[in-house]
Simulated assay, not measured.
Amino acid sequence: MLEQQVAYLLLGSNMGDRDSNLGTAIALINKEIGNVFAVSSVYETAPWGKTDQPGFLNQALGLTTNLPPLQLLQAMLGIEEQMGRVRLEKWGQRLIDIDLIFFGEDTIIDDAQLSLPHPEMHKRRFVLEPLNEIAADYIHPVFKEKVSSILTNLSDELTVQKL
């Protein structure tokens, strides 16, 4: 068992009762993974990558957990499965998506199972807007830049609106 580590996650949903899906995911994460200590506002986001689908609701979470990164990822995937997520196509519609964005102070992992920090997070407004709300001063371990600074310099024009 690892000592308590801070992790930041991003939730997304664009099927069914999107608000309820986010709430259910937060409750399950709090129960099964660790203590959720920060929850961003909910953001309405245009679809990214595959644009012929409904818009997403996104929300960032901060939590403390005893799980090491790979076990945390497995637990997150288990919650997605419990909630009925079916993976049919890359970037397709989903009841719930739970992404691990950051883990610990300076964890960097790049292997077949897990990449940390999330390899695309610095390019995506739908990740950075909610994350900035709860972790503006978190320093990206690769870029050595605060989340707030990455967001300020972002070129992504995707529509992301705080609800």
Rank of each mutant, 00 (worst) to 15 (best):
L63R: 04
I26L: 03
E157M: 14
K162Q: 12
R87G: 13
G55L: 00
L9W: 05
I98T: 03
S20H: 13
H122R: 13
P68N: 14
V36L: 08
M83D: 09
P119Q: 04
L73P: 03
E105F: 05
E81M: 10
M76T: 12
D52H: 11
Q4Y: 07
S13M: 08
P68S: 14
L154D: 06
D156V: 10
V42D: 02
D99F: 06
S41P: 01
R125V: 06
P47H: 04
S20F: 04
A38M: 12
M15V: 01
L114A: 04
G78H: 13
D97A: 10
H140L: 09
I109V: 15
I96E: 07
R85N: 09
P68D: 15
L163M: 13
F102A: 01
M121K: 08
G23P: 00
L73K: 08
R125A: 15
I134A: 06
E44T: 07
M121H: 14
N66S: 11
K50A: 12
T64C: 08
A7K: 06
D19K: 14
D17C: 11
E145R: 14
N132G: 07
A46I: 00
S41K: 05
E145P: 00
I101E: 05
T152A: 15
I33Y: 03
L95M: 12
R94T: 07
P47W: 04
K31P: 00
L9G: 00
F37Q: 00
A60K: 07
A60F: 14
D99E: 06
